[in-house]
Design a protein around this nucleic acid. Sequence first.
RNA 1: GCGAGAGUGGCGGAACUGGCAGACGCGCUGGACUUAGGAUCCAGUGGGCAACCGUGGGGGUUCGACUCCCCCCUCUCGCACCA
Length: 812
Amino acid sequence: MEYNPTEIEQKWRERWEKEGLYKKVKDTGKPKHYALTMYPYPSGDLHIGHWYAIAPSDAKARYMAMKGYNVFFPMGFDAFGLPAENVAIKNGIHPYKWTMKNIENMRLQLKSMGAMFDWDHEVVTCHPDYYKWTQWFFLKFLENGLAYRKNSPVDWCPTCNTTLAREQVWGEDRHCERCRTPVIKKSLDQWFFKVTKYAEELLDFSKIHWPERVVKMQEQWIGRSEGAEITFMSGQNDPMTVFTTRPDTLYGATFLVLAPEHPLVQKLTPPDHKEAVRGYVSEASRKTEIDRLTADREKSGVFTGAFALHPLTGERIPIWIADYVLMTYGTGAIMAVPAHDERDFAFAKKFGLYIKVVIAPPGYSGAPLQEAYPGQGEMVNSGPLNGVPSEKGKARIVEILADKGCGRASITYRLRDWLISRQRYWGAPIPIIYCAQCGTVPVPYDQLPVLLPEDAEFLPTGESPLKKHEGFLRAKCPKCNSDAHRETDTMDTFLCSSWYQYAYISPYFKDAPFSKAEAACWLPVDQYTGGIEHATMHLLYTRFFTKAMRDIGLVDFDEPVLNLYNQGIILGEDSEKMSKSRGNVVSPDDLVNEYGADAVRAYLMFIGPWDEGGPWNSRGIIGIQRFLQRTWNLVLEPAMAKGARPSSEETLELRKLAHKTVKKASGYMESFKFNTMLASLMEMNNYMYKAKSAEMAETDAWKEAIRHYILMLAPLVPHLTEELWERTGGKGSVHRQYWPVWDERLAAEDRVTFVVQVNGKLRDRLEVPAGIGQDEACELARNMDKVKSLVEGKEIVKTVFVPGKLLNIVLK
RNA sequence: GCGAGAGUGGCGGAACUGGCAGACGCGCUGGACUUAGGAUCCAGUGGGCAACCGUGGGGGUUCGACUCCCCCCUCUCGCACCA
């Protein structure tokens, strides 16, 4: 009998589908488990990276099902996005057509994996019945003050003549993904979601178990800073508020710096400085991100000619503008304390500005500083606060300012509101109508979806086809019915993925984005798996969405995903990222044809720890192929007769091995350690291969071991195990069985290899019962030849005894 | 610069709360069966003739360190003028 993966894999996939083995069922008898893996973009071809992400996720979901959970494991497609539109521009194929064709193909490829997806719950985000609800969320957010429109600078590629999504701006020098041109900033009217409203709550991870790495990245991204806002008055009585984390250094503020885009710049600047200031402002606005970075952070700026009054000393301090102050952070203005801030120090040195020490560095002599001292210390040159430790000075200064009405404690976040407008065709249209009389008017809910016109023209002008599509553009104002026009921007595809896990539970639901009854049954997601690259995008947005949905009354929990696990990245054989240009791409379809899906799945899990990723090695898969063949042989091949019945020691040893393996394998499955899980099954296989005989195969111990072996392998290798299950007379599907349970007495070690050390070095080993006592072990050890010769004539200082592990004889 | 993670045979990787370093697999060596083997099976495989030496380097704690502490080097990822 030959193991023929192609034949059995197809047979079982067909049968599972026919029998609806993986369909989501309401089953009140079992606890629910919502397992989710990040859905793919339908690029047209499922690559090995998809397999690497999805197959282990499926194995875990299958394991949970065997552990007695009612598991739901859906799959769908993140179907909006730029590649489809680029194809349309280049080849004239409509994005819908291209996307749907790709989905057809990828669905088949996904099915070849043999995963337990419930395809009845597939969602495709570019389906009008899906994006209708994406638009509905936009309107709900608008209604609840979570969406707004403002003029804002966005990343623009001057060669492609279009704005770029964040994920299309690549590399440290921030260049366009397609043509490598450095991006520039361009101001446009844009829609935003108020993520910042939830900044504080998004920092609370107490209700979820996510990898520390992701938590840290989100914390850093949100960037909470505690400090104070301090208002300075200009000579003309214009208030300017700055944000600082070091109010204790206020006495050392010797100038102010505004961002070039700061709204007060024009007003403050006296006529004799207008030209210089205007020149600097326009230069700063023309600068690309690359310029700012390659300038080696050399400070630049100009004096505005204006002065401000120090709120405590009343001193006149100059107001400068410089591009190292960002309009997008804090208040867009800072008080510069050159003695205690590196950037301000560099700026002051370059432009010859006054540097005033107000926190004494260790061993401070009063001499001018060679570099900024950003640490803590005793306050000096600070009027009434001299001698106070700076840690305490913070609060004191804030109190003083509050009394004077020119300052208060304040918290600033680096997180910015989410820019959702995209100047593209292939996304969900923003459901807004602009009317000359009524202004910005939301499309009424009963008119959703705002459909994408099918007859759009895709031209390489960089302009969205929607802008020129009269039929789409023209609309009646929902309020006054006069002629109006539609918003032509579409929504960031991250909106689609912010709520797809909700859509899965009741796809294309008619009356709401999802069914409330199903929601009560299935939400939130219990286990999510996917790449780390979404740490501060998708994974943050979906948390925001859930909090907003909760406040709107759609759900009654705070977090969309309770447990998260990030797999690593599978690299090419040359340890480089896989790419067509490098020619190191591994095709899963070819591998499936040659080795079968089970082997590809298992090999990807065996290659190393799942969260670490690593290089593909085309030679290694042969080891898995052999292992599966040996599994086949072990279970099905008749054994040679030995003539002798196995002894009770032999069968007991086999039982012990089986139970130990169940114990180990269970732990490995719980912690996503598929590589060591497979290793322990290989050990079991190797042992049984040798122990096998016609007589042994008749024993209950053997039958139990084989049964456990097949069950443990089932989540990783679903087709082969189903075939073996059937051929060995198993009832029903192997995937409907319970995960084996181990007997702790059998799994426990009763005989151990006891290590004998002399002076900490291994000298010999003893095969003894696990419960051996110190005296007995000592006695045995001293009589060993290797120990004897070393101990002879020496004084024993002490002996260290670790029960069940080792004995260490320490000599003088 | 800040934050996180990682350095173990020829290769991918094991090693629980400090206790047999190298499980498992690839590759390699030898053998068996074969007309044949890139099939299968069996045996071996960190280095060194040996005492011994070996987990990026250097110190330390300990009876005992891949594991804990200090310093340093290299690599990967994230952030990066965030006041």
